[in-house]
């Protein structure tokens, strides 16, 4: 069974499973104490308490004490927490940044410091309201009961007012969307008693809890033919995050699925006469937000936004359904008897010259006889 569809076949909200998105991913670090090219797999390998494996920075003897770790998830994820397991004492000041565009731009996610204003020019524990839900907070590093195995967990939605109504909060959906995470250690916890100060940062695990972002239109992510992680899109959607409608499914605008409404993309109704269509917002609004698809290049001599009537010069053959490729028949107006080449699109009646009759205007009406003039082919019998 497909989780994106009910047993009766109707579309329903579906999401990939909750995972540690960092597991097995490569971490780039600016400082390490050991081999330079080990890819720091100890950070994102299986974290076993019985066999703790750590990454450690080089010894830092003087300022600056900056060390950066960058984790690429390779795909947009919606993350709810970042958890860092330290093998050393937790740093005094550190920042977490996120990127939503594969590392091209970065925005701050969270700061920790005993001196928020001095180190990061941020207030300590600023108030988060509905007006600034995308603002990073700065706070003191939380204390751990056991400093030898300290864990720091940053919950991305914690304290943000719309978290209880996440499905209808585009702001928070955007806030927790990431492709890359960067952790910058800026200041270790200083020990004034040390005669020759030397500091280092060490971590055993870097976890990122979240779901592959598919906007409610896929229940899993997979590798595409180029090896890139993409959603396995359903509901007539496509794109790496199921973020647009498939071609020919533009009858209503793309929307994220919600538990109440799968918001699947619907095909345009072109009566089998067009392969392409476009979305028109004006028509969509006029229809009461039901249908906005406009068919393009109607074939088989049809016309209209749904290819639902015959184009000029053709009339509807009512013996066939509109979906039939021969539903429209050429008018066949008489070149002399008819006033033009077009006919009534439903009856096929051509517009006849005076005194001419017949569906195609090919006969003189009763009381008329054929003349020699092509301008007035039928004249009244004297």
């Amino acid at each position: 069974t497909d989780p994106c569809y009910s047993e009766s076949g109707s579309a329903r909200y579906c999401i990939p499973e909750f995972v540690n998105a960092a597991f097995g991913q490569e971490v780039t670090v600016s400082s390490t104490c050991g081999r330079r090219n080990c890819e720091h797999t100890y950070l994102t390998d299986l974290n076993s308490a019985q066999n703790l494996t750590c990454w450690q920075s080089e010894m830092l003897r003087s300022m600056p004490f900056n060390v950066t770790l960058t984790l690429s998830l390779g795909k947009k994820f919606e993350i709810t927490y970042i958890s860092l397991h330290f093998c050393s004492e937790k740093p005094d000041s550190m920042a977490i940044y996120k990127s939503m565009d594969y590392g091209r731009s970065w925005t701050p996610f969270q700061f920790y410091s005993s001196q928020c204003r001095r180190v990061y020019d941020r207030p300590n524990r600023a108030e988060i309201t509905k007006l600034n839900e995308q603002e990073p907070l700065c706070m003191e590093m939380p204390n751990s009961a056991d400093s030898s195995n300290a864990i720091l967990v940053f919950s991305t939605l914690d304290g943000r007012p719309s978290r209880t109504n996440f499905v209808s909060s585009p702001v928070l959906q955007d806030w927790i969307t990431v492709t890359d995470i960067r952790v910058t250690f800026n200041r270790p916890k200083m020990n004034k008693d040390m005669r020759e100060p030397a500091y280092f940062y060490a971590m055993s695990d870097f976890q990122v809890g979240g779901r592959c972002k598919c906007n409610g239109h896929a229940h899993r992510c997979m590798r595409d033919k180029d090896g890139m992680m993409v959603c396995d899109c359903k509901h007539n959607t496509e794109g790496s995050e199921c973020d647009r409608c498939k071609p020919f499914h533009y009858d209503r605008p793309w929307q994220r699925a919600t538990p109440k409404d799968a918001n699947e993309c619907l095909p345009c109704n072109c009566n089998l006469h067009a392969r392409r269509c476009r979305f028109n917002m004006e028509l969509y609004k006029l229809s009461g937000r039901k249908s906005g698809g406009v068919c393009m290049n109607c074939r088989h001599n049809t016309a209209g936004r749904h290819c639902h009537y015959c184009k000029e010069g053709y009339y509807r053959d009512m013996s066939r359904p509109i979906t039939h490729r021969k539903a429209c028949t050429a008018c066949d107006c008489h070149p002399v008897g008819a006033a033009g080449k077009t006919c009534n699109q439903t009856s096929g009646q051509c517009q006849c010259k005076d005194g001419v009759t017949g569906l195609t205007c090919n006969r003189c009406a009763k009381g008329y006889q054929q003349s020699r003039s092509p301008v007035a082919p039928c004249i009244k019998i004297p």
């Binding site: 008489h334 070149p335 002399v336 008897g337 001419v356 009759t357 017949g358 090919n362 006969r363 003189c364 009406a365 009763k366 054929q370 020699r372 003039s373 092509p374 301008v375 082919p377 039928c378």
Partner: peptide
Amino acid sequence: EVLPTLDMALFDWTDYEDMRPEDS
């Protein structure tokens, strides 16, 4: 009563050559 169809051969196109259908 079945009305006869227009006989194209009866038309005089002398003054209307530009209107004349190709097949007449």
